[in-house]
Design a protein around this nucleic acid. Structure first.
Lengths: 192, 192
DNA sequence: ACTTATGAAAACCGATCAGTAAATGTACCT
DNA sequence: AGGTACATTTACTGATCGGTTTTCATAAGT
């Protein structure tokens, strides 16, 4: 199997796992829906968990690339970019097939914090918070780490709320709350 | 089986499902760990989903009772009580066996919003937000619904963060953010 | 003592689980 | 054409899934 075929497998497995969940999706379904036989899958991934791990790494890369790029496109200054993160989330929430955050679900199904898949989910969250913190620093926040963590809380809460209750208005609520926290953490004249 | 035996079954099933997840827990394990034979279980619950539904209803009742009581005990005024909700969360996060929010996990494993278990999870979240809103009204918030929804976002985000990254400092971050949002939404002199 | 309910336990059902081994193509080399 | 190496499919493993049927133990009624 070529490298691109492998990538295709992981990409398609991502779609299935995201749609149906991890434990609820058997390897037979993965084989059927990706068009790759089980034997071929197990040639590249020792176990189901290994495949899921590859899926999560791909998702991490895709999601963060998308979010960071969208934040750059929608905002001009670090401060603005922190705020428009919630506009990007709004776009995501409204997408067809939005089913919440894959990492929250992974952590929910693999609860033990020692579990490698849980750890991968945790790393994803840490990376996003770190990105926020970088922007908070450049925005002149008094306590960049604090502001970044607060915005992360709003982001996670918004994802959960959008998934459980539906997307309507959630991102807007979160953005408005974020604006308050950002003003409080930077002041009207953050040095962009 | 007496009513109290049934309650005991649901209570013990709750513990197992909360610890190990829904799909990952088979009915044989439930029978073994509750001490109630599968036959006896299926006399009272038509399906596994029915049992889980009973578990979620019990959890909803227990959790909200606990949270509301703790908010009353820790705060004297409506405004204070909104804030100390995050102290109550801190206590929960530090408990042995804390594994995140059962309803977030239920919604993660039963993703379709039409699914009855997902709907039960959604109702739980709505009830808590409604409780917040009642307090926000009595605290004299300018827009009680908005404030309640914002605090809910922080709460959900804090639960997710505490579960994925560990409890350390999460509730304190959320409380500090909540304080900012509450001050902004009420003003220094909310009429308690 | 013998029958008849009752309720729980044990055994079982087909389906599916993660994972593997054997069988079958298929492409390439000489 | 014949042989070799590799990829793919088919078929299978024992275990477990949610759920049901059968067996058994107990106890009350007569």
């Amino acid at each position: 199997m070529s490298a691109s075929k492998r990538d295709q497998l992981v990409q398609r497995a991502l779609t299935v796992f995201y749609r149906d969940g991890f434990h609820a999706t058997g390897m037979d379904k993965i084989a059927a829906e990706t068009g790759v036989s089980k034997t071929a899958i197990y040639k590249h991934f020792r176990t189901k968990d290994d495949l899921i791990h590859a899926v999560l790494r791909l998702r991490d890369e895709q999601f963060r690339n998308w979010l960071y790029r969208r934040m750059e496109e929608l905002g001009d200054t670090p401060k603005e970019r922190l705020l428009v993160a919630f506009d990007a989330l709004a776009e995501w929430f409204e997408e067809d097939g939005f089913q919440g955050c894959m990492f929250i679900k992974a952590a929910s199904e693999y609860q033990d914090r020692e579990h490698p898949l849980h750890a991968t989910a945790a790393e994803h969250k840490r990376l996003i918070t770190a990105h926020f913190e970088g922007l908070a620093i450049r925005a002149g926040a008094k306590s960049p780490g604090t502001l970044a963590r607060r915005l992360t809380l709003l982001k996670e809460g918004a994802i959960v709320a959008a998934h459980i209750l539906g997307p309507k208005g959630v991102a807007a609520d979160a953005k408005a709350a974020a604006a308050v926290l950002i003003e409080h953490g930077i002041g009207e004249e953050g040095q962009n």
